Every structure is written in structure tokens, then in C-alpha cells.
Amino acid sequence: MYEGNFPYKRYQKTLEFLRANVPSPASILDLGVRNPFVKFMEKEGYTVTNTSGEDLDLDTKAVINENIEIVTAFEIFEHLVAPFNVLKDIKADKLVASVPLKLWFSSAYRSKIDPWDRHYHEFEDWQFDWLLEKAGWKIKARDKWTHPVKKIGLRPLLRLFTPRYYIVYAERSSTV
């Protein structure tokens, strides 16, 4: 089912979590430009629309649409300076979002090639939970998983046991 050089474990875990919490068919607004994972969601029966690459720190119009029922954000919020603004402005009632967890043994990701491809935040799970709750979301399900790498050394060994990704399913809190 998963071909090529795609990050098999991350895609598999994300798709399993999505299936369990938001079964298809469903219409999704996926934050970020169209990416390889969208094809996997569409194969599962989801109808997916992506944002168009706008700076979501400055322009949240895409998530203010009242007709959106589900928003997904897979490894997006760590790239934003102010993810609270987007989370607060989302009008959908359901959210599935994943973020890379902060690793005590590794500094935050920063691409050496692309100056825009960097992590402003790498969260601890409690920080992401708090951010969601403060923005008006109630977490209904969560999961974590590791991201082993095929290298030798202390950090690759630690990656075998230390969760790297955190995913949540949340619903709009009735108090907001």
C-alpha cells in the first residue's frame, strides 16, 4: 500500500489515527499545500482540499470558512510563529493535527537548503495540549510514535525509544 521513499511509519500511523477518529467519507481542509500524503487520504475515501501556501501566521481566511467540517494539520504548526491564531480562527468542529515532539538530545530542525523550512516550535505534548485547549479545542484522542533512523550512534539509538511525533483528534469546545 505504501510505495517508494515515503516515510512509511509516519504515514501509516497518521492514516490509522485519522481512520479511527474521522472515518471516511469526509471532506477535509488540509493545512499546507498539496503534498504526497494527500493521495493516501484520497485513496481512503476522503475529499481533500489544501490551503494555497499563504502565510497562516498572517492570513487565516482559509480556515474561517463556515462550510469546513474537518481540518487536518500534519506537521504544520511547528513552522508557524503564532499557531494559536490559526487554531482559534478555525470554524470547523473537528481537528486532526500532528506535530514533531521536542527531543532533549536534538536541536530543532532547520533546513540548510530552504530558509523557510524550519521549526519555530517543537512541542512537548503538554504544550501542544495547552495550546489547543487555550484556542478552544477539547482533545478526544491522542497518540505518539517513534521515528527511528537507519544510522549508527547515540542519537539514532535514542530515536528507537523516544517518541518523535504526537497526533491529536480534537473537537471544538462548546464553551468557545
Rank of each mutant, 00 (worst) to 15 (best):
residue 114 D to L: 12
residue 138 K to P: 00
residue 120 Y to I: 15
residue 130 W to L: 14
residue 110 R to T: 03
residue 137 W to T: 07
residue 119 H to K: 04
residue 143 D to V: 01
residue 131 L to F: 03
residue 115 P to G: 05
residue 143 D to F: 00
residue 127 Q to S: 11
residue 140 K to N: 07
residue 141 A to P: 00
residue 142 R to L: 08
residue 116 W to R: 09
residue 130 W to G: 06
residue 126 W to P: 00
residue 116 W to T: 07
residue 125 D to V: 01
residue 130 W to F: 13
residue 126 W to H: 10
residue 138 K to T: 14
residue 123 F to P: 01
residue 131 L to P: 02
residue 126 W to E: 05
residue 117 D to Q: 10
residue 123 F to I: 01
residue 128 F to N: 06
residue 126 W to D: 04
residue 138 K to W: 00
residue 139 I to R: 05
residue 132 L to C: 14
residue 112 K to S: 14
residue 134 K to Y: 10
residue 114 D to Y: 11
residue 113 I to N: 11
residue 110 R to V: 02
residue 136 G to P: 12
residue 125 D to E: 13
residue 115 P to Q: 06
residue 114 D to T: 05
residue 111 S to T: 07
residue 123 F to G: 01
residue 115 P to H: 05
residue 129 D to H: 15
residue 120 Y to W: 09
residue 122 E to A: 07
residue 118 R to V: 08
residue 132 L to G: 03
residue 112 K to N: 13
residue 116 W to L: 07
residue 114 D to C: 10
residue 124 E to W: 08
residue 123 F to Y: 15
residue 127 Q to N: 05
residue 142 R to Y: 07
residue 141 A to L: 07
residue 110 R to E: 13
residue 119 H to I: 01
residue 130 W to V: 00
residue 120 Y to S: 04
residue 136 G to L: 11
residue 116 W to M: 03
residue 115 P to T: 03
residue 122 E to I: 06
residue 114 D to S: 13
residue 131 L to Q: 09
residue 123 F to M: 05
residue 110 R to F: 02
residue 142 R to M: 11
residue 136 G to C: 13
residue 143 D to W: 00
residue 127 Q to Y: 06
residue 128 F to A: 06
residue 119 H to P: 00
residue 140 K to A: 13
residue 120 Y to F: 14
residue 138 K to G: 11
residue 119 H to Y: 01
residue 133 E to A: 07
residue 121 H to A: 07
residue 137 W to D: 08
residue 110 R to C: 00
residue 135 A to H: 03
residue 116 W to Y: 10
residue 129 D to I: 02
residue 140 K to M: 15
residue 137 W to E: 08
residue 114 D to E: 13
residue 122 E to Q: 15
residue 131 L to G: 04
residue 125 D to K: 01
residue 117 D to A: 12
residue 114 D to K: 12
residue 128 F to W: 13
residue 114 D to I: 09
residue 124 E to N: 09
residue 133 E to I: 04
residue 138 K to V: 13
residue 124 E to I: 04
residue 140 K to C: 10
residue 136 G to K: 12
residue 125 D to M: 01
residue 112 K to A: 14
residue 133 E to C: 02
residue 123 F to W: 11
residue 118 R to K: 15
residue 135 A to G: 02
residue 129 D to A: 09
residue 138 K to E: 15
residue 139 I to V: 15
residue 135 A to F: 05
residue 118 R to Q: 14
residue 123 F to A: 03
residue 128 F to E: 08
residue 133 E to R: 11
residue 120 Y to H: 11
residue 132 L to F: 05
residue 131 L to Y: 04
residue 138 K to Y: 07
residue 140 K to P: 00
